[in-house]
Write a protein that binds this DNA or RNA. Structure first.
Length: 464
RNA sequence: GGCGCCUUGGCGGAGUGGUUACGCAGAGGUCUGCAAAACCUUUUACACCGGUUCAAUUCCGGUAGGCGCCUCCA
């Protein structure tokens, strides 16, 4: 399996350390607000990665964290904690806010048919691990303490700028935020922040350095190492994490262990709405619930996400969502053929397509190519028939497509006996050339959202 | 200012030095009792200008426009 590695900026062969095991860590959500479609583009893509790893014979262990403390209003550790800010906004405690949005996120994950990660660790449940890691960094001389917290001295890690190919000096010239003057370097980041003297936080813990809370970056290092070991096979996240969050994760993890933190880094590009990124400041976040309210099945969004490549900047619009809905309908019509095999020698030969589809997925998750092949499969059979002889193989093929895409094609329901009887009755009157009665029956079925097409091998129904 | 990316037919979106991507939508046709589905045809596709080449949408240089990160943020 080949994947693009941000570390080397090349597509390379995935080489897990202990195959068939493969460790995957995904930077999860900060649960201070609802997730929007941009988040789902990213998370569905990682879900697709896991599905492809499994389909290729690996046994991945997937960990996705929940950031429920410490993510400050600025990634660069300025400003206040997002959770505390969200709590103030909603008149709740930070704990209540975290639980509410965590539950909402997981509910949406299920609606989108995502695999459940093996672990979804919360930062607040791993304070000890984070403190231990900071202690390790302190012992090795990578930290210093100033008035508001314990910081990582990025100048002690010479490779700091390498991952994101940062030009630290030039970058400072354009900085738009005031840097804490106590920091030794502009890129230094907080490992432990002290609670403010003037008010009590909802979330705070004792530590060797004083009461406070962990910085955002340290949680991912601490929790990934706890569950997956010191060197990850794959680390994934949004493209925005390259210059700060992941750069910092590498700095602190590799300083602590002396080992490579992750062998392969994958980043999902952003999705644009009306040519702009989705951002709080633009107020253009669309939630999964907004789609559902407009009558879209979450699977439509899932298919739409797969229609573009994860490394390219894709676009979201209601028009393209409608196109995805129609495409999904076509796939579902293909899937419904499993209930009505015909006496025909026409073969869909789905297993031939599956090899090519899987190969496309294993080529850096080329989902557009994989879907192109799937669409060809859906439209291949002459008059869209499958033969009785291949119905079992066809069902197996649908299951394999589900394994890769998660579009729920295999798990569909047959029509009712009553509906089958109506179709049979229509065949009878059609045989008698009673076109009026025949069309009445067709209209009656249409009211139950069932369409019919008459083929030389008998009528085939499809859901409208 | 620094780093990086993009510009493909009505819309979305792959890909390639010479061959139909694919999907959705529109028009015409074949087929059909009528439909439907399928199939066929169709609307001069690769921003612009140079260069390399037998051949460039696909490589190189420039121009124009747009975008992302360096604030929020997947």
């Amino acid at each position: 399996m080949k994947l693009y590695n941000t570390l080397t900026r090349n597509v390379e062969e995935l080489k897990p350390q202990n195959p068939p095991a493969a460790t995957v860590y995904t930077c999860g959500p900060t649960v201070y607000d609802y997730a929007h479609v941009g988040h789902w583009f990213t998370y569905v893509r990682w879900d697709t990665l896991l599905r492809t790893l499994k389909a290729s014979g690996l046994e991945p262990k997937w960990v996705m964290n929940i950031t429920d403390v410490g993510h400050l209003v600025s990634d660069a550790d300025e400003g206040e904690d997002k959770l505390e800010k969200g709590a103030r906004r909603e008149g709740k405690t930070a704990w209540e806010v975290a639980k509410f949005y965590t539950d909402d996120f997981i509910a949406d994950m299920h609606k989108l048919g995502m695999l459940t990660p093996d672990e979804m660790p919360r930062a607040t449940e791993h304070i000890k691990e984070q403190i231990d890691l900071i202690k390790k960094l302190e012992e090795k001389g990578f930290t210093y303490t100033i008035s508001d917290g314990v910081y990582y001295d990025t100048s002690k890690f010479p490779q700091y700028a390498d991952f994101a190919k940062l030009d630290l000096e030039e970058q400072q010239a354009g900085a738009r935020v005031e840097v804490n003057p106590e920091k030794r370097n502009a890129t230094d980041f907080a490992l432990w922040k002290f609670s403010p003297a003037d008010h009590q936080r909802d979330m705070e813990w004792d530590s060797p350095w004083g009461k406070g809370f962990p910085g955002w970056h340290i949680e991912c290092s601490a929790m990934s190492m706890k569950y997956l070991g010191e060197t990850l096979d794959i680390h994934t996240g949004g493209i925005d994490h390259v210059p700060v969050h992941h750069t910092n994760e590498i700095a602190q993890s590799e300083a602590a262990t002396g080992k490579r933190f992750a062998n392969l880094w994958m980043h999902s590009n952003h999705v644009l709405i009306n040519g702009e990124k989705i951002a709080k400041s633009l107020g253009n976040g669309i939630r999964l619930q907004d789609l559902i309210d407009k009558g879209f099945d979450p699977m439509v969004l899932r298919l739409h996400i797969l229609e573009s490549h994860y490394r390219s900047q894709s676009k979201f619009s209601w028009e393209s969502l409608e196109a995805a809905r129609n495409r999904l309908h076509n796939y579902q019509r293909m899937a419904d053929l499993q209930f009505q095999p015909a006496q025909t020698d026409v073969w869909i030969a789905a297993d031939q397509s599956l090899g090519a589809i899987q190969a496309a997925m294993e080529d850096d998750l080329n989902t557009p190519e994989a879907l192109a092949l799937t669409s060809e499969l859906a439209g291949r059979a002459e008059e869209r028939l499958i033969s009785r002889a291949e119905v079992d193989a066809f069902r197996l093929a649908l299951q394999k497509l589900d394994d890769l895409f998660g579009l729920d094609l295999a798990d569909r329901q047959d029509i009712t006996e009553e509906q089958k009887n109506l179709i049979a009755l229509r065949e009878e009157v059609r045989g008698a050339k009673d076109w009026t009665r025949s069309d009445e029956l067709r209209d009656a079925l249409a009211k139950q959202n069932l369409g019919l097409r008459d083929t030389p091998h008998g009528p085939i129904w499809f859901r409208i």
